[in-house]
Simulated assay, not measured.
Amino acid sequence: MSYGMNRSANAFKVFAVPVKAVTCETTVAQFCPYKKLTRHCPRLYCPRNCLRETRARVIGSEYYSDKSSICRAAVHAGVIQNHSGGYLDVQPVDKRRQYSGSYQNGISSESLQNPSDGKAFRVFAVI
C-alpha cells in the first residue's frame, strides 16, 4: 500500500538492474563507452582467476583508465576476490591527467601521464 502526501518530498524509483557477464580482458572502452557522466554501465559479473590474465592491462590505482581490464582493476582495487570473481558496479568519471600505478592484491598496475583520450572509471563491490 502506498500513501499520498500533501507536501512534496524526496522521491525514489525501484527498478531491476541488468547484469552482464564480462571476460577478464574486457575494458570499459570496449564494453561500456560513455559520452556523459550520467551514463552508467550495467552491473557486471567478473569470472574468477583474472589474476592470470597478464595480457589484460590495468592502468591506475583507485581511478583507472578506460583502457584497463575492468575485472583485473576490480581485483587490484580489492572489490572482488580473484579466486571467486563477483559482481561490481562501474562509475564513470572525468579523464585524469595522470594515473598512478601500484602493486595491490597480486596485480601491478601501470602509470600513465597525460593520456590523449579516453575516460576514467572507479569500481565498487556489490554486496
Rank of each mutant, 00 (worst) to 15 (best):
S68R: 02
L44A: 01
V22A: 11
Q91V: 15
C50M: 07
G118M: 05
S100H: 14
Y103C: 00
E53A: 14
C46E: 04
G78V: 11
V123H: 02
V58H: 02
G4R: 08
M5T: 12
A29S: 13
K67G: 01
K36Y: 09
K13Q: 02
V75Q: 00
E53N: 14
Y34S: 14
S2I: 15
C46M: 08
P18A: 12
P115M: 07
C71L: 04
K35E: 13
K67T: 10
R48D: 04
S116H: 05
R43I: 05
N49Y: 08
D117P: 01
K67R: 10
A125W: 03
N105A: 05
K67V: 06
R52N: 07
V93T: 15
A77V: 05
E62M: 00
V17L: 13
S116Q: 07
A77C: 06
A56C: 09
N114Y: 06
A11V: 15
R96K: 15
T23Q: 13
D94V: 14
Q30K: 11
R7M: 09
K67Y: 03
T26L: 11
Q104D: 10
V126S: 03
Y3W: 10
Y34H: 12
A16Q: 13
R57E: 12
G106C: 08
P42L: 07
K20E: 15
S84C: 01
A74G: 05
L44I: 11
A9M: 14
C71V: 07
K95I: 13
C24F: 09
L51A: 08
S111N: 03
G85F: 02
D117S: 15
R39K: 13
F121L: 02
N82E: 03
Q104Y: 10
E110Y: 06
N6S: 13
M5E: 09
